[in-house]
């Protein structure tokens, strides 16, 4: 059905009218949702949602920007999103909820993220990964990291008061304090180019597994729905709180493989940056939000738990593939990997 979406967006069918293509897409989407064994691992549905969401970011080459707000595209998102959210709510491991308060929420978030015993891609990268595996790691990360911070920025106009100011303080740093060459997305692109990868946005979409797209789609869904502003705040907090030490290990891994500061700067920068961000995100963003709007408390923890769950699943798949001596990328006929 993602092919059906592309056919509609590219308006390149010689025979079918737009209405026919739209009707076909609706049928294909309903069928795909009915048949999927696991929405989080469904390449077709996650690709379709990713493409529809990409219209809200950098757009799609050859696709008219007007499609972003086209009712058919919005309907496609609206048909997938409830199932996606339901799957995440069923499977994310929710902690016991604290009282809404800055101290209590921050403490509970630190406990949740600290007790996360997910697989350690970072330890593997630091100690064992081959050059090829390290490149695969960058390819998988590129789906989000080339638009790093953007999904959470959606929340800025949806928040008020202390939580808004805290999010702005974090995001300003994510965007390099207004300096292009310091923007985290730009630093990641520099890392990719440094190891010989293509840093064009979307270049590797076809070779990453569904769970990698699901991780990005989850952030966009949380960020783009005002109703889910608690979840996007919690997601950012968990992301920042599980970042400093892994990034130190990623940097060490690339140093071990012989790469210079041009490649490792992104990771080294994140050790320091995220040690700042996690404090602001846990207390001033998530803690303040849950205090000011206690009805969002549960979603703050849902966003955090969903992020940990999806990224844990993704990490497990990467490590399983690497330890089995296979690729963590999706098997495709033509690989985008450089020769």
């Amino acid at each position: 059905m993602s092919a059906g979406l592309l056919e509609l967006l590219l308006e390149n069918s010689p025979t079918a009218t737009e209405a026919d293509l739209a009707a076909t897409l609706r049928e294909l989407t309903a069928a795909a949702l009915g048949e999927t064994a696991d929405l989080l691992q469904d390449d077709d549905l996650q690709t379709a949602l990713f493409l529809a969401y990409e219209l809200r970011y950098s757009g799609l080459r050859g696709v008219d920007d007007a499609w972003e707000w086209h009712p058919e595209v919005l309907a496609l998102c609206a048909s997938i999103e409830p199932e996606f959210e339901k799957a995440l709510r069923e499977r994310a491991l929710m902690p016991e909820l604290p009282e809404p308060g800055v101290e209590s929420v921050a403490a509970a978030l630190f406990e949740l993220t600290g007790s996360d015993t997910g697989p350690s891609v970072s330890r593997y990268l630091a100690k064992k990964a081959t050059d090829e595996q390290a490149q695969e790691f960058l390819i998988l990360r590129s789906i989000y990291q080339l638009k790093e911070a953007d999904p959470h920025t959606w929340a800025i106009p949806r928040l008020r008061s202390r939580a808004k100011a805290a999010l702005v303080e974090i995001q300003a740093d994510e965007y390099g304090g207004g300096r292009f060459d310091r923007m985290h997305s730009e630093l990641f692109a520099r890392t990719m180019r440094g190891v010989g990868l293509d840093a064009t946005n979307g270049h590797y979409v076809d070779v990453v597994p569904a769970i990698t797209l699901a991780s990005s789609n989850m952030m966009t869904m949380f960020g783009a729905h005002r109703r889910l502003r608690g979840a996007i705040a919690g997601h950012l907090a968990a992301l920042e709180m599980t970042s400093s030490q892994p990034n130190r290990l990623y940097g060490n891994g690339f140093r071990r493989l012989g790469y210079n500061a041009d490649v490792t700067f992104y990771f080294d920068e994140h050790v320091e940056a995220d040690a700042v961000h996690e404090q602001i995100a846990a207390r001033d963003l998530a803690g303040s939000l849950a205090t000011d709007e206690p009805e969002l408390l549960e979603d703050v923890f849902f966003g955090a738990a969903a992020g940990l769950y999806v990224d844990g699943l993704s990490g497990t798949q990467q490590l399983d593939a690497w330890t089995a001596g296979t690729s963590a990328l999706r098997a495709t006929e033509t690989s985008s990997m450089p020769a």
Binding site: F110, G114, E169, A172, D173, G177, S243, S244, Q245, R248, E269, V271, E272, A273, D274, A275, V276, E278, Q279, I280
Partner: peptide, 26 residues
Amino acid sequence: PRRKTVALCRCGVSTLKPFCDGSHKA
């Protein structure tokens, strides 16, 4: 300074001193 808001280590084990690297949690 690399950023506008900085975090200074006060647990003593940061590998980035004077800045915090999150080691206090460990």
